[in-house]
Design a protein around this nucleic acid. Sequence first.
DNA 1: ATTCTCACA
DNA 2: TGTGAGCA
Length: 112
Amino acid sequence: MSSSELQRNRAVLPMSTVRELTLLTDRQIRYYEQHELITPQRGKGGQRRFSLNDIDRLLQIKDYLDAGDSTADIKELFAKAERKHQSQLDSENSLRRSLQDEFAQIARFNQH
DNA sequence: ATTCTCACA
DNA sequence: TGTGAGCA
C-alpha cells in the first residue's frame, strides 16, 4: 500500500471539519454511519475521527442521494465498487507474477 | 466548547 | 431527518 494511500486513511478529522467540508449536518453524517455507508474511527471519549477517504465517501453519498438512490442502494454500490477494485488488484498481481516468472526463465536460459 | 446517545409535545 | 436533554 502506498504512503499517500495510508495518509488518506488516517482518521484525524473531527465532526466540525467534516461538517464544513461536506456541507452536511452532523445529524446526517451519523445517520449515514448507522446505515453503514461510512465507518469512521473513534477517539477519546467516543468521538468520531474521519479520514480524507471518509470525506470522499460522504461527498459521493450526497451525489447518489441527489440522484435518487436510497441508502441501501448506495451501500450496495459501494460494495460492488469494492469487489471490482479487489479483482482489479488481483489481476494486476497475477500479471506481475507471470512476468516475473518469464524473466526468471529468460535469465536461466541466458546462463546456459 | 464540542461531540455523543437517546428519545420524541 | 430535526431538536433538545444530559453526559463526557
